[in-house]
Write a protein that binds this DNA or RNA. Structure first.
Lengths: 329, 329
DNA sequence: GGCCGTCTATCGCAATTCCGCAAAACATGA
DNA sequence: TCATGTTTTGCGGAATTGCGATAGACGGCC
């Protein structure tokens, strides 16, 4: 009987499947990805992340069964390219996801996703050197441009679909038979080469996406929301007033409201309350019943009325805040 | 002297006139309709229901001399279309009844009516196949859309009036001369064809009703009330607390109060007490003096103080609970 | 039985958010 | 430059919510 190297396969198997039922735990057990997820609907979350590690590169599939907003960035010097499933609906930095759209993101740059139910996105993470060496071998080293921040690219619908499907097939195979990748270095590097070739072939065809007028509107609305959100998060304990937000962001109240409604589908206060609820949950999960009380955590995030807080929390997460605090061993 | 076929006319005559003086007995002797009525005023009830059966279809007129709330659903696979009398005032699922408004309800879907004194509503119940075959004969089978749940339609005021008046004339004729329909199959099927033609002609003109802002508010208030009511009914024996209701429904106390006042015209506790009184009455009417006592039935529904219960019961129904229990032989 | 403290429901009031509407400002393309 | 369609903004009314005053019910105690 074959015994796999436990030091490798246990600490970091090539294939990881995570079912995510709690937006507060998206960051658990993943080192190169930084995500902050907020549920925009109250139904129970059933999201999933599948990672296939191919040497220094990796393929990551994200799916979600409900509307979410996430802010995601990739670290450890990895570049990210993202393709979207045919059913995926949502926005990236305000830009509606559309057929043929691809994302290119520099290391540590942050993308703001708003994701609708039925979301499927395939991310390809890899170190820039992999691309450079791959191209150098083929003497095409000047063709690669390092993305600045998060860039939106456009290819033909079929091309984008091919890229997504390639990833989907890889992930499906990996889920059905993890041992194939977990135990075979050869399988992994073969896939890695194929990944580079498929990806670069697609990128070769890619144009910069030229946003139209309504696109730019959405983008600026997304920025308004981001600014308001950042401001609200910096004023953790204070009561929320839209007036303050508007002054901080520099737009009229009406514009702020329209922007939130357009981007998040929620009114400003409704969304920011939800955001704070998520922060409280993260705080509750990060401590023990001995070191904190629910009211202290709630108070930190501006919930002055315990009854109201408790009700909103229950409605959002399906359990009482006290249960969250007690549940963890 | 002519003797009608007793096996038919007794079991199910085509024309039925029921005078309803007791909200607890609305369901008696009617198989396709499920109604739960609650008096919102204390005066004696004098409601009436006239049914004219035309083959598988039927025309049902409801009138009431005082404010009522009913939850109604139609079974046996029958579709329901409802037109309202010119004097009818009230709400359906929170939406105010207005001129030109029609209702279309799928089988088993529930409509929450709040009905003011002087109510007149004409319901047309028929199996979907009747409509399909009727249209198929005229080669217009694609024009019929099965309603999903309870839908609100809008036609011109005169059209709606014509539909209502057609039903009113039919019902008036049937009340004055029941034998006409009871004994003549030909008369019934002629009326059935006319019903289909009148109804479909009206439906042809119907638009989906677009609720405005205040409409949507009423709708959500109606949902709040429904949720609170359902919760209260699931907690039969427990003491009522507004706080609990609010937690169950997920709104603030003030909102709950406004919702009840707006929808029912009563405060939350006042309404829910009335609802429980009705349930006790149903229980009392459903048993014999040997098998239950008044206090047992009252206790089941959370009335701990017999004096208060008795007084409220008398005020609502005009008789003492003990008399209700003894009255039926 | 009558009185008082406590608890709860109800309601008015005010602060705030939310949303429809339409005018003003702006961008785009002919 | 103008005409056109979109975006931003302001305004006003409606809806929501919290707070506090009041009243009424309940329970205990004299």
């Amino acid at each position: 009987m074959k015994i796999p190297n436990p030091g490798f396969t246990l600490v970091q198997p090539a294939v990881t499947v995570e079912d995510i039922n709690d937006p507060a735990t998206v960051n658990a057990g993943i080192e190169m990805l930084d995500q902050d997820a907020v549920k925009l609907q109250s139904q129970p979350l059933r999201a999933r992340r599948v990672i296939v590690r191919l040497g220094a590169a990796m393929v990551v599939l994200h799916t979600s069964n409900l509307r979410l907003r996430t802010r995601t960035s990739v670290h450890q010097g990895l570049l990210a390219y993202v393709a979207f499933g045919p059913q995926a609906r949502g926005t990236v930095n305000g830009l509606p996801v559309r057929p043929g759209m691809l994302l290119a993101a520099a290391p540590d740059s942050e993308a703001r996703f708003v994701v609708d139910a039925g979301w499927e996105a395939m991310a390809f993470l890899l170190p820039p050197e992999d691309i450079r060496t791959h191209l150098a071998v083929r003497q095409r080293d000047r063709e690669f441009r390092m993305p600045q921040g998060v860039e939106t690219l456009q290819v033909s619908e079929v091309r984008a679909r091919q890229l997504f499907d390639w990833g989907k097939r890889l992930v499906d195979t990996a889920v059905l038979d993890p041992a194939l990748f977990n135990e075979s270095e050869a399988e992994r590097s073969a896939a890695q080469v194929e990944l580079l070739e498929t990806l670069l072939a697609t990128l070769d065809m890619a144009d910069d996406f030229e946003p139209g007028r309504s696109d730019r509107t959405r983008q600026s609305q997304s920025l308004i929301v981001k600014a308001a959100e950042d401001h609200a998060l910096s004023q953790t304990g204070a009561t929320l007033y839209v007036t303050d937000l508007c002054k901080a962001v520099g737009v009229s109240e009406r514009t702020l409201e329209y922007a939130f409604k357009e981007v998040m589908g929620l009114t400003p206060v409704a969304y920011l309350i939800r955001l704070r609820l998520h922060r409280v949950r993260q705080a509750l999960l990060a401590t023990t019943p001995e070191s904190t009380t629910v009211s202290a955590a709630a108070l930190c995030w501006g919930f002055w009325h315990f009854g109201e807080f408790s009700r909103a929390y229950k409605d959002c997460f399906g359990e009482l805040p006290s249960d969250t605090l007690l549940r963890k061993p």
